[in-house]
Amino acid sequence: MTPLLSVEGVSKEFLVRGKRIVALDSITLALEQGEFVTVVGPSGCGKSTLLNLIVGLLSPSAGRILLRGRPINGINPEIGYVTQKDNLLPWRTLVQNVEIALEIRGVDPRERRRRAGVLIQQVGLGGFEGHYPHELSGGMRQRANIIRTLIYEPQLILMDEPFGPLDAQTRIVLQDQLLGLWNAARKTIIFITHDLVEAIALADRVVMMTSRPGKVKSVTGVPIPRPRDVYQIHESPAFRSTHETLWRELRPEVSLAESWRGGIRP
């Protein structure tokens, strides 16, 4: 069976003030239908660039990206993208934001209201349908950001540190809800995070990237059965051993990235 997504030897270079910068270096990765994969790595390792390539906002300098065996060329409606910033349209109410993708597709207003309503209830935003984004908290906005992508059921959903700006408690609640939504819809998810605990709690596999130029350092399976309880997950022995393995790999990359930022090149 062909994988849902395969990234084959993809590199991406940028020209910054005439200097060539390699953001990604021959990334190879394959995702099966319904998989939940998290990507961790030090800041500036090109994680977001990888997502922008997959979604078709950028095109690779080398290599190719295939969705069900077909090369991705430009934007593909089968791929959804949940950005780090919630990017809700401020002039639309919560429900109008959630249903916008269906509006674009010309879905009947009553039907899209109904489908938006179901998702809004699922993430506990019932009663806030008529609120504008500025009247909602960061966690509520991020939930809306996620369900407005889920509503049109893209096969593959990319998430770029969606819980990054939230406080620790809200993050756990949202992780739990995300797992619930994923379990119900069984879409394939690539989830970027810099939080190792979050990466393990959510994923079937964790992809570790090196600091610039970004390469795949390792891919680690998470042997924790589902359904998972994200509130208690850190107590499981499987969690601890996975965390230890991954942290040992991540640590040199983090210090490398930090020393670069300080201007000391290895």
């Binding site: 979604v55 906002l57 934007i75 409606p77 791929i79 959804g80 993208y81 950005t83 910033k85 990017n87 349209l89 916008i100 993708a101 509006e103 674009i104 597709r105 992508t149 049109y152």
Partner: peptide, 21 residues
């Protein structure tokens, strides 16, 4: 904001829909 336009573009909006919405 280019990001707002990209959000709709990724959802499959046409340039005309992006202009209007």
């Amino acid at each position: 904001d280019l990001e707002l336009k990209n959000v709709l573009r990724i959802m499959g909006a046409t340039e005309r829909q992006i202009l209007v919405k």
